[in-house]
């Protein structure tokens, strides 16, 4: 009984290591395929469309609302200390350091990541990937590499758009509705948000998130069981795993960047 259990545990462990190994081998194969994309920018542009442009609406809408909520909540707290002039700082720092990269990455995982997994999984299920291999076309270079690059490029842009829209959302509520002075909204913000510590670190965060989310999405699609059930499971796994990865990595990166 105990040995059965131990054996099962060992099997599980080996399976996990196998998946980790496969994921990394795929990652390196995708990286090796990146230089080839230089001569085929169209492949990347097409993917930027489906990964970036199609995520734009949800990112803009969420950014706007998150900024508005931040202003409302921040104002109610700050006004107790008579510090409502700092509203700009609160909104901007929350967005640029945390909510911009993280929420944009979570939305990206749900919108673009799941679509990527489903698309690649479906291509595998319908033997399109095999067919490409038999046409002497490497699917890792033609299908996976441009999607990976597009995800990596799109994520920091989406996060920046999210933060910028959020700052203006906060402005509409804070200055427009709650009557914070427009000048101090911006000047407090400028005095306390640092280009390197906050903006650049936020961009670094979203680059890391973009890489991880796209990697997970592509791996799950490429590694799925080639049945419709397998694809739907892989899609769910993509959203769950990449969301968890984003949140865990956010903790680590925050500790490294702002920890001292």
């Amino acid at each position: 009984m105990f040995f059965d259990w131990l054996q099962q545990l060992g099997h599980r462990g080996l399976d996990i290591f196998e998946r980790i190994g496969r994921a990394h081998l795929l990652f390196f194969a995708i990286l090796a395929g990146q230089p080839g994309l230089l001569s085929r920018p169209r492949l990347v542009i097409a993917q930027l469309y489906s990964v970036g442009v199609l995520s734009l609406l949800i990112i803009v809408m969420s950014g706007l609302f998150v900024g508005m909520v931040l202003a409302l909540q921040g104002y109610n707290t700050l006004v107790k200390f008579g510090a409502e002039e700092s509203l700009g700082t609160v909104v901007a720092l929350s967005l640029v350091r945390e909510l911009g990269p993280v929420v944009a990455a979570l939305l990206f995982a749900g919108r673009a990541g799941s679509a990527l997994t489903a698309e690649i999984g479906l291509m595998k299920t319908t033997e399109q990937l095999s067919a490409m291999e038999m046409m002497a076309v490497d699917p890792i270079r033609r299908i996976l590499a441009p999607r990976f690059l597009a995800g990596f490029i799109a994520m920091p842009l989406l996060a920046s758009i999210f933060s910028a829209v959020g700052v203006f959302g906060g402005y509409f509520v804070g200055v427009g509705q709650l009557g914070v002075d427009a000048g101090s909204y911006w000047s407090q913000m400028q005095a306390n948000v640092d280009i390197y510590d906050d903006i650049v670190n936020g961009v670094i965060k979203s680059l890391v998130f973009g890489l991880v989310v796209t990697w997970i999405a592509i791996f799950e699609g490429h590694d799925c069981t080639p049945t419709s059930e397998g694809v739907s499971r892989a899609t769910t796994r993509t959203v769950v795993h990449s969301s968890l990865a984003v949140l865990a990595l956010d903790f680590i990166l925050t500790a490294l960047m702002f920890g001292d």
Partner: peptide, 19 residues
């Protein structure tokens, strides 16, 4: 291998056309 595969054509069971 890729050079050799150019000399091979394959018809997959459900066609496997790029959708």
């Amino acid at each position: 291998l890729y050079a050799l595969r150019r000399k091979m054509g394959m018809l997959f069971q459900n066609g496997a056309l790029l959708t």
